[in-house]
């Protein structure tokens, strides 16, 4: 039962190989096997969204996948957002600017959920933004400044001449 399975997975553009027991959750694999502790675990039943990562570009709960299922896939975690020189990703910068985080524990999940949403809906209304955020729980901010950060970012990119 404790057989280990070799997993090869691309995360933030880098190839990782490691062995995992089939029951190991992807969230635990990222955090404890690979040391990518930016992805947080808040509920392990798929409600809080803190563990959200991108699987082949789509947001998924990493607590609701086994690590073995990620074999051969392409993942993006919060560690992959900022530029190589450390500059914040525009979404991260908007969060800071708008004070969209307090304790910061849920923040990686929000960032990862928002990334594909912003691509899908560059002209999202406040209602759509709130609906998109509703799969992630935050206990500190009351969401107001998260909504503000998203709106700021959308306004910025929409006013970009490019």
């Amino acid at each position: 039962m404790n057989t280990q399975i070799e997993i090869s997975v691309k995360i933030n553009g880098k190839q990782y190989s490691a062995a995992a027991e089939p029951r190991l959750l992807l969230s635990d694999f990222l955090r404890h096997e690979l040391g990518l502790t930016g992805t947080h675990v808040g509920c392990e039943h798929g409600v809080c969204g803190a563990c959200t990562v991108l699987l082949n570009g789509e947001a998924v709960r990493s607590c609701l996948m086994f690590a073995v299922q990620a074999d051969g896939q392409d993942l993006l975690t919060v560690e992959g957002l900022a530029a190589a020189n450390g500059d914040l990703h525009p979404l991260q910068a908007a969060f800071r600017e708008a004070h969209a985080l307090q304790c910061g524990f849920c923040t990686p999940g929000f960032l990862m959920s928002l990334l594909p949403f912003l691509q899908d809906k560059p002209d999202a209304s406040e209602e759509e933004i709130r609906a998109a955020l509703s799969g992630n729980l935050c206990r500190c901010t009351g969401y107001q400044n998260i909504v503000k950060a998203v709106k700021m970012l959308l306004e910025e990119s929409n006013s970009d001449p490019a």
Binding site: G46, G49, T52, L55, E58, A59, V60, R61, L64, M65, S113, P116, F117, A132, S134, G135
Partner: peptide
């Protein structure tokens, strides 16, 4: 049905 993160899987 739930949220996009769930519907993606």
């Amino acid at each position: 049905i739930a949220h996009p993160q769930i519907r993606n899987r």
